[in-house]
Nucleic acid binder design. Structure first.
Lengths: 219, 219
DNA sequence: GTGTATATCTCGGGG
DNA sequence: CCCCGAGGTATACAC
């Protein structure tokens, strides 16, 4: 990790063309070759950046960063205020809790929380439009497509609608019901989902985790 | 802009719960109060961050950053390797050269590339749901709503669907056809668009620019 | 403020 | 390698 504070101006040509007038900024060069130019405001997005892999060519006046697909970033250095480097080593990485993938996994093993008698057929059931989160079968043997979201919003309902439209054309599956599951379902999404005949289920992540898994019950 | 390089571990509780094991990282504190924690790899996204407005409480062992809606970031400092601050001043900001807007402008002047006999009625035709990129009329005098994207994905097809649903309620326009244009249309988006009866057109930006404009032909 | 559309999105997973 | 979906998306803009 190299940190350079400098008065500089910048030109970027690649996926678009953009430029920065002269000002004092932080230039961050990471060990993997990524370069980011930060001002003193704005949450985490840099003004300009280049993703690895890169080639950095350095002269006292100009830094030229060349990317893999014709992208180019040229930094003109007017005055370098600071230039330091640190070896940070490899990072163990972020550990997340409570994201959609975990919610999906928990539900796949506990489909009965959606409805009594529900059984999981498979996760990530493929369709021409992409994979359905869960494909289940209800107590009556009817196929059920389940869309899992952390926060249930309208686009999730649209997604489920698209899947069902296609699944219902498959004579081996049809008719297929829809279930919309989320930790929190927004009022507008619930209205739309209910209007389209989907069952809406709100689940609590911690409650779910504490429930026994159907998979374990088999033994 | 304050830059701290430190061996640290981190806890985040807010929109989700996440943690970072002990490692050496860069902690960036911007003048507006934003805090970002960077490892030595990855494009520009920090491992953890807090967006302004924030309150930063600092003790030798712990930094606690408290956000506006119950978000909290706790950094435990095991060893500070460097701690420096710079006054960068205000940044004049990034000047961009647009892409999608230019694509739309080029198509507005060359609607015949979409279909023989197509004529532009207007750009950014307003509806209650937002502006339709282009409203045209085909060789048979039928109204055509055109959605322009750099990359054609399913979201764009949904967008066009919503516009058409609305436009087709206007007796002065109905029936309205849909055309989905992009430099590249993804297979799934094409499947959905075709299924809904939309014409899909892929255009090349440079080819388009080299074609004569209909506007100029009028003179 | 809320909602919508965009992004040089980034990032991770699966084929 | 590309494709696809999710994100604590962030960010700009309209309402």
């Amino acid at each position: 990790m190299r940190l350079v504070v400098a008065r500089c101006s910048v030109l970027y040509e690649g996926r678009l063309a953009a430029s920065l007038q002269e000002a004092t900024r932080l230039i961050m060069v990471k060990a993997d070759g990524c370069v980011a130019i930060h001002s003193d405001s704005g949450a985490y997005k840099p003004l300009n950046w280049m993703t690895a892999p890169n080639v950095l060519t350095e002269t006292p006046l100009h830094w030229t960063v060349t990317g893999s697909r014709g992208e180019r970033l040229v930094i003109t250095m007017h005055e370098v205020l600071s230039d330091s480097a640190y070896d940070l080593g490899r990072d163990p990485g972020l550990e997340k809790d409570g994201v959609e993938a975990q919610l999906q996994a928990l539900l796949a093993e506990r489909p009965h929380v959606l409805e009594v008698g529900m059984v999981t057929i498979r996760r990530e059931y493929p369709t021409a439009l992409g994979p359905v989160d869960l494909l289940c079968r209800d107590a009556n043997g009817i196929a059920v497509a389940v869309e899992v979201k952390r926060r249930g919003e309208i686009d999730g309902v649209e997604q489920l609608t698209r899947y069902l439209e296609f699944l219902n054309r498959d004579p081996l599956l049809a008719p297929v019901r829809g279930v919309f599951v989320a930790q929190e379902i927004k009022a507008q999404a619930r209205t739309l989902a209910t209007d389209r005949g989907f069952l809406c289920v709100e689940v609590d992540y911690d409650d779910l985790r504490s429930l026994p898994s159907n998979i374990l019950r088999l033994f």
